[in-house]
C-alpha cells in the first residue's frame, strides 16, 4: 500500500482516471441531450466503434489528427441522421433499434478494419497540453491540467450543456419534448425537430467519444470500445440526466478503473484476485445506483415516440 500513497502514483492515477473518463463523458453528455428530449439511443457503442475506425483510418492516411477527429465526429453525425430517422421519423422502438445500430457498428467497423488496413500501424497520439499557471499547482496541476485537448473539451462541455439545458429556450424546448410532448406541441414546438437535433448532437458526441478513445489507445482493433458506449448510457441514469451528475459518474467510473489497475500493478491486489478486483467499477456503479436511483425521476416520456393525438 505504501507504493500507492506516493505523490507520483496518486497524481498519476487520478490523471489517468480523468483521461479515461473523457470518452465516457463525451458519449454520456450527448446521450443526456437525447434522453432529456425523450429519445434513448442504445446504439452509442456501435457509433463509437465506427467513429473510432474513421478516426484511425483518417489519421493513418493523412497523418493529421485534426482531420481524424473531424472524421470521427462526422461519422457520428452521419449515424445521427440514421438514428434520428429511425427513432424520431419512423418512431421505431428505440431500445431495440439501438441494438441494431450497435451490431451494425460492431460488425462493420471490424470488417472495414480487416479489409482496408493492411498493417495496423499506430498513429501519433495527442500530446498533453499544460494549462499555464494552473499546471504548476502542486498535485492538482499534474492531475487535471496536463491533459490532452480532447479531455479539456469533454469537461468544458459540461457547463456548456448545463447552460443550454437549463438557461436557454432551446433547453426548455428539449425538456418540454421529454416531459410533455403534447403540451409542447400545442404551444407550437416541433417535437420531432427538437428530437432530431438532440439525436444529431448526441451521435456527434458519440463520434467524438470514439475519436477520443482511439487517440488514447493509438490504434484500432476489433471491438475497441469494450462496451464503453453501453456504460456511457448507464452513466446518464447514474448522473440523473444532469450534465454535472453525468460528469461525476464518468469520473467515478474512470477512477474505479484506474485505482483497481494501480493496485493490481503495484501488487496491492494479489494476482489470484486480479479478475475479481476487475469487477469493481461495475459493482460500484450498480451499488451506487441502488442508493440513489429512487430519488431521481427519468424524463416522463423517455423512449416513447411522439405522435400527435396521443
Amino acid at each position: 500500500m505504501a507504493h500507492f500513497f506516493t505523490y507520483a502514483v496518486l497524481t498519476s492515477t487520478v490523471a489517468a482516471a480523468i483521461a479515461l473518463s473523457s470518452s465516457f463523458l463525451f458519449a454520456a453528455l450527448g446521450e443526456t441531450m437525447g434522453q432529456r428530449s425523450g429519445v434513448i439511443n442504445l446504439g452509442v457503442d456501435g457509433i463509437m466503434l465506427l467513429s473510432a475506425f474513421a478516426t484511425y483510418f483518417t489519421a493513418l492516411k493523412t497523418g493529421d489528427l485534426l482531420y481524424a477527429v473531424l472524421a470521427g465526429a462526422g461519422v457520428g453525425l452521419v449515424m445521427g441522421f440514421v438514428t434520428a430517422f429511425i427513432s424520431v421519423t419512423l418512431k421505431a422502438e428505440q431500445g431495440i433499434s439501438g441494438i441494431g445500430v450497435y451490431l451494425f457498428g460492431l460488425g462493420l467497423s471490424d470488417l472495414l478494419f480487416l479489409r482496408l488496413v493492411g498493417t495496423p500501424l499506430p498513429i501519433s497520439q495527442l500530446s498533453p497540453i499544460g494549462i499555464p499557471l494552473l499546471d504548476r499547482i502542486p498535485a492538482v496541476g499534474a492531475m487535471f491540467f496536463r491533459q490532452t485537448i480532447l479531455v479539456y473539451l469533454a469537461f468544458l462541455l459540461v457547463p456548456v450543456f448545463t447552460f443550454v439545458l437549463n438557461r436557454t429556450t432551446y433547453g426548455l424546448k428539449i425538456r418540454a419534448a421529454g416531459e410533455n410532448p403534447s403540451a409542447a406541441d400545442t404551444v407550437g414546438i416541433s417535437v420531432a425537430r427538437i428530437r432530431w437535433s438532440t439525436v444529431l448532437i448526441g451521435c456527434t458526441m458519440a463520434g467524438l467519444a470514439g475519436a477520443a478513445l482511439l487517440l488514447y489507445d493509438g490504434i484500432f482493433m476489433e471491438n475497441l470500445t469494450q462496451s464503453e458506449g453501453f456504460i456511457a448510457v448507464a452513466l446518464v441514469y447514474f448522473g440523473a440526466w444532469r450534465p454535472l451528475g453525468v460528469m461525476g459518474g464518468s469520473v467515478l467510473y474512470g477512477l474505479a478503473i484506474a485505482v483497481v489497475l494501480s493496485w493490481k500493478s503495484l501488487g496491492i491486489i494479489p494476482l489470484s484476485a486480479s479478475d475479481l478486483a476487475a469487477t469493481a467499477p461495475a459493482v460500484i456503479t450498480v451499488l451506487t445506483l441502488l442508493l440513489v436511483a429512487r430519488r431521481f425521476r427519468q424524463p416522463a416520456v423517455l423512449g416513447k415516440p411522439y405522435e400527435r393525438g396521443d
Binding site: 507520483a8 492515477t13 479515461l20 488514447y216 469494450q226
Partner: peptide
C-alpha cells in the same frame, strides 16, 4: 483482456509513476 488497449496504457502509466 487480450484486447483492451486502454487498460494496458493505463497500467504502463501507473508503472511509470511508481
Amino acid at each position: 483482456s487480450f484486447s483492451d488497449d486502454s487498460l494496458m496504457a493505463t497500467a504502463a502509466k501507473t508503472f511509470v509513476s511508481d
